[in-house]
Amino acid sequence: MRLGKLLQLTQERIVLLLTVFMFLIFAATIDRFLQADNILSIVQNVSVLGILGVGMAMSIIGRGIDLSVVAVMAYSVAWALTLFNQDANLPLSLLLGLGFAILVGLINGVLIAYVEIPAIFATLASGTAVAGFGQFFLVDTDVVFVPRSIGWLASIGSGRTFGVPNSVISLAVVAVLLYWTLHRTVFGRYLYAMGDNPKAARVAGIPVRPMMLAQYVLTAVIAFTAGLVTAMAVDSMNTRVVNSTLVYDVILIAVIGGISLSGGRGSVRNVLVGTVMIGVLLNGMTMLNMPYTAQNIVKGAILLAAIIADSVFNPRDEQTSQQGDI
């Protein structure tokens, strides 16, 4: 029984195996792939993606989705940096930036929980609104640079501790905190319950609507954190990231690792597996000098393969998917 469970191929395990497989292939074919520096840069390059992915996973587990994360990340941090450049003090700038992110999270939550708009539309609209609002009122230039005077804060995104890039440590901290929140707190238990069966959660006495509010606020806070780490890593916040496909990559790493879009399933570990896989893949392809367009083809093909493999190995059986009598 135990052994059977261990051998069962979940999507997470399939992706993990695939990652190991790719890693071995790249290691055998690319000279410098196995160097410590390169291994670290694999993780470093995807650490911000990982942080966003962990936040996205949380909203998906609660049967939602948050498409506004990239806009929130870009403009809350860009605004905080702009304020700081205009001689506001650092804590105040950060607090206002964070406050902006929380406000967007609250608006998302109210739209979804109380106005009952589907999450995908509410956050798509709010993301666009945030970008527009940010461009018009908050941030003058597309790229806001991080001034030298930022001091200690720079270390969350750049530099190394005991040889490990600090951005990777930031990802680890966020992942551990969120893991603990999901599995050891009342909030986490409620979130899984809501994602699994919202009606049953309501009947059991879980405050479903306030929980949804909290869910989107927390996602926005994580997006702000991801933004800070990015900005500190590259010394600037480029708000043009809003127009990129970043948000799809974020959904990709969550889904590829096995966070079920139907809610209630998966955890932080799944996101990390997905993140490492994309990291290895992107790094290997770049080192092989593969053109960007070809990389996209590979990325898309792998996502499809993972989803197909999952539905082959774990078919939705009639017993669980159908209601009513046998």
């Binding site: 899984y192 319950a193 699994d196 069966n197 009606k199 049953a200 959660a201 309501r202 009947v203 209630g264 399933r265 669980t320 209601q323």
Partner: peptide, 9 residues
């Protein structure tokens, strides 16, 4: 099944 238990738990 609809509003009783949580099947992932």
């Amino acid at each position: 099944k609809i509003e009783g238990f949580f099947d992932t738990m």
